[in-house]
Design a protein around this nucleic acid. Structure first.
Length: 576
RNA sequence: GGGGUCGUAGUUCAGCUGGUUAGAACGCCGGCCUGUCACGCCGGAGGUCGCGAGUUCGAGUCUCGUCGGCCCCGCCA
């Protein structure tokens, strides 16, 4: 095989090699022409001299060429330490222009900042940039190592259907019309959930799949309509087995980028995570934890606080050194929290000149002092307080905490925190629909000691569910599943799904469970987010070869698109 | 569904309170150049100011609408 460009080094000196690749840049000195040749591995410098100089002059950016040349050491002091192949260069003896390139719409180099729109339209050029190619390489290495890891642990990779049936609950499905069965639709899987459970009934015992999942919901920097999971399920296991399995996996793959996770991760109950961080996927790399304020509000003399404490929750954050924030900056904090459904923040300051707060008139100097003392605010500190319904208070302060940390650059460079969040609620009340929904999914096992609450106080039941969090990003989540048909029926009852609907939607699962279902559980890890964190990017688009825009289109293929009338007819469909 | 922000040479951007011929850098084209690696020097071409209305004597600039990119809320695990 031909060598890769960047693989050439001192060992190949005086070898004659054949190279292929793309012309990255030409430096034409007249009778002497240098060309950087690029392939997946990187760059090597070609030299066209004497008779060949005229040949080299004809080349331009992104032309595809084949050369035969002699590897030689660069002269003293002319090595390029920026290049892996910088000690050598290749004196070209023979040149073949395989294909000429038109001038590309943007220069194919790492530090050229073409708009993402343009990069997505010409994704093949974008991927040619070394940083993007490195992301593809990293992704491959992680997947390859993960597969090796699970193979060593006796897991079996099994493919599950992409054309499957629509199930209620969870995200909106992508639907695929059936030509053969008019008015019937397949759905693309939101995850292989039911199949991986059925594989346990089948006796696979330990299942893994790099699975593509589809969810028709609005997009974000970390959300694409199709994404990949490292999907895992096993029989006869407990939470502890899953934790150890995932910790073992991460210890294998994170070192690829120089991150060494601890052998085991701290565990945090959901309720505690919410109280301390206002978030079920806390970033624990910095402080600014939430403080309970409500006990100091009763009878304090400031009606807003009194009623907030009586009807909901009041919590705050102490910002060390935050007393220096200007009025304008404090107003901005209020603006920041408004979208989360609270009226704003109430602030208290302790400065050398005394205390300050918009509530000072109502509370008096002593009142303000009492709040600051209760929150443990030192001189020059700022206390911000938010009151309202529990859900919005947590949402507002959880978001504000992250905002303050990034504004104040409070996250230590190079630090990475891994942790498990456990004991999630089994069910979550939905106001719009007026019923409970499964927080994880309807097959998640309640904790046995909470089982009796399922009928009386469904919201209080804790689940045998867990999420693995890194740096405030949810990398994955899973649960021990229900393997008792009676409990499963109780769960459906709590969800308000009638017996008939259960039979129609999930009959096949319940039937399977009649024939010997092993206790089982699993987890799904977000591969794209994992690669994003490993490569230090802030969007999963950068680690997916051909991603969609935030409006779910592909700028390269212009998908989605209209189709022929005839295709619609065959499917028995009419568009409006 | 809602909010914010951006859209001007091939690219990244500048363009003031509306006013003559819309600029810069990089890229591109031509010329010179034998040790460059962001090569250098000289010269040149290149514009549907996203699109559509409106206000105005006059719109890149103001107003409304619309399309597209990005970020966030809702939604989604």
């Amino acid at each position: 095989m031909r060598p890769w460009c960047a693989a050439l080094g001192a060992e190949q000196i005086s070898d004659t090699v054949e190279l292929v690749g793309w012309v990255r840049r030409r430096r034409d000195l007249g009778g002497l022409v240098f060309v950087d040749l690029r392939d997946r591995s990187g760059l090597v410098q070609l030299v066209f001299e004497d008779d060949m100089a005229a040949e080299g002059e004809k080349l331009s950016g992104e032309d595809v060429i084949r050369v035969v040349g002699e590897v030689r050491a660069r002269a003293e002091g002319q090595a390029n330490t920026e290049l892996r192949s910088g000690e050598i260069e290749v004196k070209v003896i023979e040149l073949e222009l395989l294909t000429e390139s038109e001038t590309p719409p943007f220069v194919v180099e790492d530090d050229v900042n073409a708009s993402e729109e343009l990069r997505l339209k010409h994704r093949y050029l974008d991927l040619r940039r070394p940083k993007m190619m490195a992301n593809l390489v990293l992704r491959h290495r992680v997947v390859a190592d993960a597969r090796r890891y699970f193979d060593e642990m006796d897991f079996l990779e099994v493919e599950t259907p992409i054309l499957t049936r629509s199930t209620p609950e969870g995200a909106r499905d992508f639907l695929v019309p059936s030509r053969i069965h008019k008015r019937s639709f397949y759905a693309l899987p939101q995850s292989p959930q039911l199949f991986k459970q059925l594989l346990q009934v089948a006796g696979v015992g330990r299942y893994v799949q790099i699975a593509r999942c589809f969810r028709d919901e609005d997009l974000r920097a970390d959300r694409q309509p199709e994404f990949s999971q490292i999907d895992v399920e096993a029989s006869f296991i407990s939470e502890e087995d899953i934790y150890a399995l995932v910790e073992g996996l991460f210890s294998r793959i994170f070192p690829i980028v120089g991150i060494e996770p601890p052998a085991t991760y701290p565990r945090l109950a959901y309720a505690e995570a919410m109280e301390r961080f206002g978030c079920d996927r806390p970033d624990t790399r910095f402080g600014l934890e939430l403080i309970e304020i409500a006990p100091f509000c009763e009878g304090c003399g400031f009606t807003v606080l009194e009623s907030a404490a009586a009807e909901g929750r009041v919590k705050g954050i102490v910002v060390p050194g935050g007393a220096s924030l200007s009025r304008k900056q404090l107003d901005a904090l209020s603006e920041f929290v408004k979208p989360y459904g609270v009226p704003g923040v109430l602030w208290f300051k302790r400065t050398p000149d005394g205390v300050a707060s918009p509530a000072k008139k109502a509370l008096g100097e002593e009142g303000v002092e009492r709040f600051l003392a209760a929150a443990g605010a030192a001189e020059e500190d700022l206390l911000v307080v938010v009151g309202g319904r529990e859900k919005v208070v947590f949402a507002a302060l959880g978001a504000l905490r992250l905002h303050l940390a990034s504004e104040g650059r409070l996250i230590p460079e190079g630090r990475h925190d891994f942790l498990w969040v456990t004991d999630f609620p089994l069910l979550e009340w939905n106001d719009d629909e007026g019923r409970f929904f499964a927080m994880h999914h309807p097959f998640t096992s309640p904790r046995p000691e909470d089982l009796e609450l399922l009928a009386s106080d469904p919201g209080a039941v804790r689940a045998r569910a867990y999420d693995v969090i890194m740096d405030g990003v949810e990398l994955g989540g899973g649960s021990i599943r229900i393997n008792n048909p009676t409990v499963q029926r109780q769960m459906f009852t709590a969800l308000g799904i009638g017996a008939e609907e259960v039979q129609e939607r999930f009959g096949f699962l319940l039937e399977a469970f009649r024939y010997g279902v092993p206790p089982h559980g699993g987890i799904a890890l977000g591969l794209d987010r994992m690669i994003m964190l490993m490569s230090g990017r802030d969007s999963i688009r950068d680690v997916i070869a051909f991603p969609k825009t935030t409006s779910a289109s592909c700028l390269m293929t212009e998908a989605p698109s209209g189709v022929d009338e005839r295709q619609l007819e065959e499917l028995g469909l009419k568009t409006r």
